[in-house]
Amino acid sequence: MSAVPVTPHPVSADAAPAAPAAPRLLYKPAEVRTGWRVLPTRMAAMCAVEIQKLRHDRTELYTRAIQPALWLLIFGETFTRLRAIPTGGLPYLDYLAPGIIAQSAMFIAIFYGIQIIWERDSGVLTKLLVTPTPRAALVAGKAFAAGVKSVIQAVVVVIIAALLGVALTWNPLKLLGVALAVVLASAFFSCLSICIAGIVLTRDRLMGIGQAITMPLFFGSNALYPVSLMPAWLRVISKGNPLSYEVDALRGLLIGTPSHLPLDFGVLALAALAGIAGASALLGRLAK
């Protein structure tokens, strides 16, 4: 009996060899953050950088505490004895302390544009702008980093005021509100400084303009005296001054005077957002 040969079936040219199975990953790859999701990370990174600077060099913190201490010790104590400014039965030193907190925070933030110009001159800003991070994220990170420094400065002023006998609240929720008001106001003033830096482009000009506007902002607010004592034209300026809303919020939270907290925080939040938008638009001009 002879064997019958088996004819192999022809292989179709269209048939492809089976692809090997893809290996199963034992971990999930990190998700790439884009757009607005970069903002919290960048803000946290900038705040961490500023805190690291203070850890390595506390000289700025000590020197900046001298001016508010002098305001409280000399100006506050003197006018408390004179009783020249009506504060509704509140000791003038107590009335003044929140205004000095706001003033010291503003003085830190209003010259923040100098750091941006230094980063431009050293090439750091150009490297930041070519990253995929949105400009608004960069500006917001730097603005709220200035807010962190201002909060640390505010803590120093609060301690000095407490040592002088100012009747401050120690309610944790109210203190958190104080920190939020300081951060929002400092974010606006630092963005204002960045906007000025984007226009003048040099440190010398920025220093001159910063010194020219700090005192009008300070004296054009309710930091030193009630709005009712101001002339009519100065009241109009005070209503458009974000520092007035910060001081009103700090007084209401720290010493319990009548205030308009929803309006105060609303104005400060809108001012901070407007400042971030304006500074983001002018940031690219610095890198040219």
Rank of each mutant, 00 (worst) to 15 (best):
S2K: 11
V4K: 08
V6M: 11
H9S: 11
A13V: 09
A13R: 09
A16N: 08
P17E: 13
A19V: 14
A19R: 05
P20E: 12
A21K: 09
A22C: 03
P23W: 01
P23A: 01
P29Y: 03
A30Y: 15
E31F: 10
T34E: 05
G35I: 15
G35Q: 14
R37P: 13
V38K: 02
V38I: 09
P40M: 05
R42E: 11
M43E: 06
A45F: 11
M46E: 15
C47Y: 07
A48L: 13
E50Q: 12
Q52F: 10
Q52L: 12
K53S: 15
R55K: 13
H56E: 07
D57E: 13
T59L: 14
E60H: 13
E60D: 10
L61M: 15
Y62L: 14
T63V: 15
R64N: 13
R64L: 11
R64M: 14
A69D: 07
A69I: 15
L70N: 09
L70V: 13
L73Y: 08
G76V: 11
R83Y: 04
R83K: 07
A84C: 08
A84W: 05
L90M: 15
L96R: 02
L96D: 00
P98M: 01
G99C: 09
A102I: 12
F111K: 10
I114W: 10
I114N: 09
I117N: 10
I117T: 11
R120P: 05
R120H: 06
D121Q: 05
L129P: 13
T131D: 06
P134N: 02
R135T: 10
A137R: 04
A140P: 09
A143V: 11
G147D: 05
S150L: 14
Q153T: 12
A154R: 08
V156Y: 02
I160R: 01
A162W: 11
L163N: 02
G165I: 11
V166H: 00
T169N: 07
T169S: 12
W170R: 05
N171C: 14
P172G: 01
L175R: 04
L176C: 15
L176A: 14
V178Y: 00
A179L: 09
L180R: 06
S186E: 03
A187V: 08
S193I: 09
S193Y: 07
S193D: 05
I196Q: 03
I196L: 08
L201T: 09
L201S: 01
R205V: 11
M207K: 02
M207G: 07
G208S: 14
G208T: 12
T214N: 12
P216N: 03
F218C: 06
F219C: 06
S221M: 04
S221Y: 07
N222W: 01
A223Q: 05
P226F: 05
V227E: 08
M230E: 00
I237V: 15
N241D: 03
Y245K: 03
V247Q: 02
V247S: 00
L250Y: 04
R251W: 03
R251V: 10
I255M: 07
G256V: 10
H260A: 03
L263D: 06
D264W: 02
G266D: 09
L268E: 00
A272R: 03
L273H: 05
A274W: 01
A274N: 00
I276R: 00
A279E: 03
L282H: 05
L282E: 04
A287S: 13
